[in-house]
Amino acid sequence: MLSVKGLRANVGENEILTGLDLEVGPGEIHAIMGPNGSGKSTFSHVLSGREGYEVTAGSVTFEGQDLLALEPEERAHLGVFLAFQYPVELPGVNNTYFLKAALNSIRKARGESELDAVSFLRLIKEKLKILHLNDSLLKRAVNAGFSGGEKKRNEIFQMALLEPKLAILDETDSGLDIDALRVVADGVNALRSPERSMIVVTHYQRLLDYIEPDRVHVLAKGRIIRSGGKELALELEEKGYGWILEQEQAA
């Protein structure tokens, strides 16, 4: 499904991704953990096509297509979705209008018919129910004045609505209290399916108590330095990142 090979990327003069390899199969959930500043968000942004990063080497293939050659919206049309670490506030842009524009843009790009207002509202209601959310966020401007928890929930809601094939969740858990964390985790679990892969970026192993990953990777200094099963997350929780970094240096 997703194949990342030897990916290197710069921000200005600095190389942030230094040869990153990752293979994600259909329906798999991969956790990426790593210390602050290791390049997790950079990786997420490069996958979703944000400007400001220069890819200098390597490749990213998504369902056989060269992802890096595509515009951000084209990636979304293919089914790539990023839940932002810091969701952007859009004052004056109504959330419902935004969701409808997003969904219909994707449907149109895929040659499907656009949803009319009634079918759209029906769909919204259905998704809210699955995620145990109420509709209070829909009437407001996108993320404007939302609390941290509300912003993260809104990201998950968008994911539920747009039904991506590859969802990248960039620290969706950070800054959340335990209740909000559960909402996010329940949402992710509800959306788990054999056709949907996820990359769950997290700084803490806490989230992985609720979302069980197929694979866990440690990202440090811009590349994956260790991969394993979910027990790797527990080991990291116990010992911190220090020991892996030391082993890595010794090697």
């Binding site: 979703s48 096509g49 944000r50 400007e51 400001g52 515009e71 951000p72 919206e73 990636r75 979304a76 049309h77 979705f81 990023l82 932002f84 969701p87 952007v88 859009l90 935004f98 524009a101 997003a102 969904l103 843009s105 994707i106 790009a109 968008q158 747009l162």
Partner: peptide, 14 residues
């Protein structure tokens, strides 16, 4: 640019 990117990342054309 980050507002524009947010919308585009949701499939909305530039």
């Amino acid at each position: 640019p980050e507002k524009l990117f947010y919308l585009r990342s949701r499939g909305i054309s530039a």
